[in-house]
Each structure stands twice: as structure tokens, then as C-alpha cells.
């Protein structure tokens, strides 16, 4: 079979085994071809692994930076950016619960019963309000089911919305600003200090780390009573 060439080329054309009454089937260059095939096969395997690994981390598979179409073209840029509505006006449970919460249609109608009340593109909102059927918003940040992420603990320990969600106030249609890979979570769990903010700046989309962030981070970590690194990177912190 062909693989006996690759795995044990000397069986076929080794000079020691050459025999007068056995015709030489293969040219001597077969030795080189066989070895080159081996090397190529191994490197192709390595390359394939590298490609698969790279692909798994690329935005192509993590969906990072891909703006999602929604049933209504809801713009965070307009609502959170231009109009300046606080995140918590709609995401009411973000400070007290694992999930930030998606507002019921009634929250939209707080304003849109009057504003843009005839706009065609808001018809799905009005229809939802009339019929009681939910608007099927498309989830943008989806973690695997074995990850038990909790919004409230991050908010209450000084991690701002924008640290993970990016500049939401500049996103006409929302996209996922972070890769949401486990390695990305761990980067911060191993060393949270660069990402800690004062309590008053958690919901500020435009906050930039000050020059003395290294110092501030240490101070805040002590103030928020952050757990030890060993606890923060323990499996059961995020997985049950």
C-alpha cells in the first residue's frame, strides 16, 4: 500500500536489502520523496491546527465586531449617546441580578407613545404593545450555557459597562465589542486592577483610565474587597 512508502521507505528500496533477483521498482529519489512527504504531512497537520485555533479565536467565529440586525433598528447611539439616557433606564436589573434585563415593550412606549408615534419603523413596537407579543430581539452577547456570568457582581466591584461592551453609545446597531473567549475573561480575572473604576463612573461610556490607574486600581481593589486571584480564577467562580 502507499503508506508503506511513507512509513518504512527502506523496506522498498534500501540498499542493504537490495537483492539481485528482485527488480528495483523505485528510483533512488523515492527516499527523498518519502521523507519530504513525512515532513510535509507533519507540518500540514501543525498548520491545520494553527488555522483551526486561529479561526476559533477570530471574529469570524466569535462574532466580534459584527453589528446584528434586529427586528427594530434600535440605536444605542441615539438613546444612550445622543439623548443621554442612563443604561439602567432600560436595563433595570443590572445592579442587582445576574442578567441586565431587556426592557418590556412598555418601556419603549414611555416615550414612543408620543415621540415618533406614527413612524413606520416603530410599527413592530406598537404591535407588540397592542398584542402583548414579545419583540424577538436578537441576542448579541451569548455565552456558552456552562458559563454563569453575573452582571451585578461586576458592576458592584467596579467594572464599567464599557469595559466589556465597548462604546455602546456609539453603536447604531449593537455589536459585540469583545471576543468573549475564556482567555479574555481570565486576562481580567488574573489582573483586574487596570479595569477598575470609581463607583460613580461605572455607567459612564466615555470614562478613560487616568494616568495613575495602576495606583487607583490597587486602591479600588482594596476598597471593593476583591477576592484573591486564586479565587477569581478558580473554575467554580464561573462554572457550576
Amino acid at each position: 500500500m502507499w503508506w508503506s512508502l511513507v512509513l518504512r521507505p527502506q523496506l522498498v528500496c534500501s540498499p542493504h536489502k537490495r537483492n539481485a533477483n528482485m527488480a528495483q521498482i523505485f528510483h533512488r529519489s523515492s527516499n527523498f520523496v518519502a521523507r519530504a512527504t513525512l515532513v510535509l504531512a507533519l507540518s500540514a497537520g501543525g498548520l491545520a491546527l494553527a488555522v483551526i485555533g486561529g479561526l476559533a479565536r477570530s471574529p469570524y467565529l466569535t462574532n466580534q465586531n459584527v453589528a446584528r440586525q434586529q427586528p427594530v433598528q434600535f440605536s444605542h447611539k441615539h438613546h444612550a449617546g445622543d439623548v443621554g439616557i442612563d443604561c439602567r433606564y432600560c436595563h433595570t436589573s443590572v445592579e442587582s441580578s445576574a442578567v441586565a434585563g431587556l426592557p418590556p415593550t412598555k418601556t419603549c412606549m414611555n416615550c414612543h407613545s408620543v415621540l415618533f408615534s406614527n413612524a413606520g419603523y416603530l410599527e413592530p413596537v406598537r404591535e407588540s404593545f397592542r398584542t402583548g407579543q414579545s419583540i424577538a430581539w436578537v441576542k448579541v452577547h451569548r455565552l456558552p450555557d456552562f458559563v454563569y456570568f453575573n452582571h451585578s457582581i461586576h458592576i458592584n466591584k467596579g467594572v464599567g459597562c464599557a469595559s466589556c461592551h465597548g462604546p455602546v453609545n456609539q453603536m447604531p446597531l449593537l455589536w459585540q465589542a469583545s471576543p468573549l473567549l475564556m482567555s479574555w475573561c481570565l486576562d481580567c480575572h488574573r489582573n483586574p486592577e487596570p479595569n477598575l473604576r470609581p463607583k460613580s463612573e461605572i455607567f459612564n461610556m466615555d470614562w478613560k483610565a487616568p494616568a495613575n490607574q495602576a495606583e487607583l486600581g490597587k486602591k479600588l481593589a482594596a476598597e471593593y474587597k476583591l477576592r484573591t486571584t486564586a479565587e477569581l480564577i478558580s473554575c467554580s467562580t464561573c462554572h457550576r
Partner: peptide, 15 residues
């Protein structure tokens, strides 16, 4: 295969 990533259970506000 990502069976564990998409488990037959409901998370908050899931359809």
C-alpha cells in the same frame, strides 16, 4: 461538538 455550550435549558428571557 458544543453540546454543553447549548444545553436544553432556558436562560433568562430565552425564547
Amino acid at each position: 461538538r458544543q453540546d454543553m455550550a447549548r444545553q436544553p435549558k432556558y436562560r433568562a428571557l430565552a425564547p
